[in-house]
C-alpha cells in the first residue's frame, strides 16, 4: 500500500523557487492500477520520482507498506519514458542486469518473464535490434524480475505509434492481471488513462496538484468504443476543461 500525505516539493531554480507539487494526498491499495494525467509541467514525473526514491528531498510523508521511502530500490520498479537498456548487453542479460544468469533460479525467471512480455526468441538480441515497443517490454521484464511491490511507469508508451501503443496497453494489463503488481502509470493520453486505470488522477499545474480522482468502474477487458467508456472519457475530459485548456494533453480520438 502506498500512502502519500501532504506532499510538497519545491525546486530551487535560478529564477526563484518553483513549487512542483503542492499538498498531494493519495492512497493506493495493493494491486491497484492508478493512472495519472495532466498537462506538461504539472509534476507527474516529479511525483513518480519521489515515489521511486530517486528524489528524496521533499516535505510531507510518502510511505510504501508503512515505511517511509528513503531511496531507490528494487521494491519499486521504474519504467522511464525511454527503455534505458544497457546497449552492450543482450536482452536476457539486460533483464538480469546485476543478477547472474548462471543462477538457475534467475535464468528460469528471466525466461518466464520474457515469455510474459512476449519476447521469447529474442533472448540473445541486442537492444539496437529491437523496436521501441520491444525495448520497453524488456525494461518492464527487468523491473518485474525484482518482484517489485509497485511498478512506476512514466509515459512508457509515449514514444510509440498508436498501433504499438494499444498493443502494449493490452500487454501491460495482461501483466498486471497475472502479477497483481500495484501500478502507477503516468500518461498524456486521455484514452490511455481511461483504458488502463481503475482510478484516474487528474493533475493541474502551477503549482502541481491533484484536481480530482475519478473511479473508472468498467470491467476488463475494456472496449474503447463502448458507450460507458466514452461517457467516462467525457467525464475526465470535463475535469480538464473546467480549468485548463492546454494543448499538452492529447484528447484526440486515439484509436
Amino acid at each position: 500500500m502506498l500512502e502519500i500525505e501532504s506532499l510538497n516539493k519545491t525546486f530551487a531554480a535560478p529564477s526563484g523557487p518553483v513549487v512542483a507539487l503542492r499538498d498531494i494526498r493519495l492512497t493506493v491499495g495493493r494491486g491497484e492500477f492508478v493512472t495519472f494525467i495532466g498537462p506538461s509541467g504539472c509534476g507527474k514525473s516529479t511525483l513518480l520520482k519521489i515515489v521511486a526514491g530517486l528524489d528524496t528531498v521533499y516535505e510531507g510523508s510518502v510511505k510504501l507498506n508503512g515505511e517511509r521511502i528513503g531511496g531507490p530500490g528494487i521494491d519499486k520498479g521504474v519504467i522511464f519514458q525511454e527503455p534505458r537498456l544497457f546497449p552492450w548487453l543482450t536482452v536476457e542479460k539486460n533483464v538480469a542486469a546485476n543478477l547472474s544468469l548462471r543462477n538457475p533460479e534467475v535464468r528460469k525467471r528471466v525466461g518466464e518473464l520474457l515469455e510474459l512480455v512476449r519476447l521469447q526468441g529474442f533472448e540473445k538480441a541486442y537492444p539496437r535490434e529491437l523496436s521501441g515497443g520491444m525495448a520497453q517490454r524488456v525494461a518492464i521484464a527487468r523491473a518485474l524480475l525484482r518482484n517489485p511491490d509497485i511498478l512506476l511507469l512514466d509515459e512508457p508508451f509515449g514514444a510509440l505509434d498508436a498501433f504499438t501503443r494499444s498493443h502494449m496497453q493490452e500487454v501491460l494489463l495482461d501483466i498486471w492481471q497475472r502479477s497483481k503488481t500495484t501500478m502507477l502509470f503516468v500518461t498524456h493520453d486521455l484514452d490511455e488513462a481511461v483504458f488502463l486505470g481503475q482510478r484516474v488522477v487528474v493533475m493541474n499545474p502551477r503549482p502541481g496538484h491533484i484536481r480530482s480522482v475519478l473511479d473508472i468502474d468498467l470491467p476488463y477487458p475494456r472496449s474503447r468504443t463502448g458507450a460507458s467508456f466514452q461517457e467516462l472519457r467525457a467525464l475526465v475530459l470535463g475535469e480538464f476543461e473546467k480549468v485548463e485548456k492546454g494543448p499538452a494533453v492529447d484528447v484526440g480520438a486515439g484509436i
Binding site: 530517486l54 531511496g71 528494487i74 521504474v78 534505458r84
Partner: peptide, 21 residues
Amino acid sequence: RKLHEVTKALEFSALQQATKL
C-alpha cells in the same frame, strides 16, 4: 546519467556500477 539512474533503481552495488556501467 540516465543509465546511472537505472543502476540506482536496480540497487547495483558500487562495484557493480563500476564494472557493469
